[in-house]
């Protein structure tokens, strides 16, 4: 075999190897969308609740599962999930052990809190005018929710509207794992 054929064969082998490697590796979008926060301590959330009840803090909710929900009142998926969130909160308010904490994202705090109250929600809601909380939680757009364990660790991230059944499933899995 001449030298040129050897070189051509070598280049061909390298090209085929690269095609195989890139074909079996996960797409960049999948890698980018995976949150690095799972099983990490939940960043602090604290401030006056926009729905009344004084100052609220995530740290004071230790001992309960907490659903942190980033929302905006203008966002249609947030409007769709609100009745489900409300039902979930009411269901667990009676039994205890689970709390809901809203965070206003990309919205004016006043109208957002009023909107929550008008829809029956009485769970605490925090303002995030600088987007600092959203940044620390790696939130991309509303609605995004996080299930926090009683020890303050992030168990799941839910992009998009939540449902009572979906949240109950997550809770059941978390409890089964001993959280």
């Amino acid at each position: 075999m001449t030298r040129i054929r050897w070189i051509a064969t070598g280049v061909g082998v390298v090209v085929v190897a690269l095609i195989v490697v890139f074909a079996v590796s996960p797409p960049a979008t999948t890698v980018a969308d995976r949150t690095p926060l799972i099983d990490k301590p939940a960043p602090a959330l604290a401030g006056p609740s926009l729905t009344g009840g004084g100052r609220v803090s995530l740290a004071r909710m230790r001992g309960s599962f907490v659903l942190v929900n980033f929302f905006a009142h203008w966002c249609v998926p947030c409007q769709q999930e609100e009745p489900q969130l409300e039902a979930f909160w009411r269901q667990h308010r009676r039994s205890g052990g689970v709390a809901v904490l809203g965070v206003v994202l990309e919205d004016q705090p006043g109208p957002a809190a009023k909107w929550v109250e008008e829809h029956g929600g009485r769970y605490p809601v925090l303002a995030d005018p600088e987007g600092d909380y959203a940044f620390r939680y790696g939130v991309r757009s509303p609605p995004t929710s996080f299930l926090i364990s009683p020890k303050g660790r992030i168990l799941s991230e839910i992009d998009g509207p939540v449902t009572v059944s979906g949240l109950d499933r997550l809770l059941a899995v978390a409890r089964a794992r001993g959280y």
Partner: peptide, 17 residues
């Protein structure tokens, strides 16, 4: 990166692929 993951940095990593 700790909030949004490594994919948010618009520079290919110097490790792996």
């Amino acid at each position: 990166e700790s909030s949004y993951g490594a994919g948010v940095i618009l520079r290919p990593p110097a490790t792996g692929l």
